[in-house]
Simulated assay, not measured.
Amino acid sequence: MNTYVSATPDELQIRLGEQIRRLRLGRDLDQLTLAERAGVSEKALRNLEAGRGSNVATLLQVIQALDALDWLQALAPAASVSPMALLRQRPEPRRVSRRRGKRTPPEQQQR
């Protein structure tokens, strides 16, 4: 089950910050080093990791400095097949008639 569905925006910011922090620690970077690489203040990075409101520019600079831009692809992956194209390719439904048996003329029918 997706635990993000019922989360509030504040909870989502906290979870995002935790993911950024785990990624930073996984890259063995301290906050000051990452902030410098990203071109943001250390306080902006701390706020981002704490889920205390940050802007999109800061987020993008940080994930770029972490070499994690594939996160953006995960937000809206490019469809390999267009659902509308699939609908257009589907053949039109055809009416199927029942096979009828050979009719026996009334004079040959048994009573």
Score class of each variant (00 low, 15 high):
R88C: 07
G26N: 08
A35D: 00
L32M: 11
P105R: 11
E36V: 12
L86R: 10
G101L: 11
R22N: 05
L86Y: 05
D70V: 06
P91I: 05
R24P: 08
R111V: 15
S97C: 05
R98C: 09
Q89V: 02
L23C: 09
S6A: 15
P106L: 07
A50F: 02
R95C: 08
A78R: 04
R15A: 10
T8W: 07
A44W: 01
A79P: 07
A35P: 00
G101K: 13
R37C: 01
R99T: 15
R99Y: 10
G17A: 09
R100G: 11
Q61I: 00
G51M: 02
Y4S: 10
P93C: 04
A85P: 05
Q109W: 09
P91R: 14
G17Y: 01
V56Y: 08
L72N: 00
R95F: 14
N47W: 04
R88E: 13
Q89A: 15
P77C: 07
L72G: 00
L60N: 03
R52H: 12
G39L: 05
R98S: 15
P9H: 10
V81T: 12
D70T: 11
D70G: 08
T58V: 15
A50R: 14
R94T: 13
P83Y: 00
K102V: 07
R37E: 02
K43Q: 14
R15C: 08
S97Y: 11
A74D: 13
L48N: 02
T58Q: 06
E42C: 09
Q110S: 12
E107Y: 14
G101I: 09
L32V: 04
S97F: 10
E49T: 11
R52L: 14
I63M: 10
R24S: 06
Q64I: 08
V96P: 04
A65S: 13
V56A: 07
L69N: 11
G101E: 10
D30V: 15
G51A: 03
D28T: 12
E18S: 07
R37G: 05
S6F: 06
G39Y: 01
V56W: 01
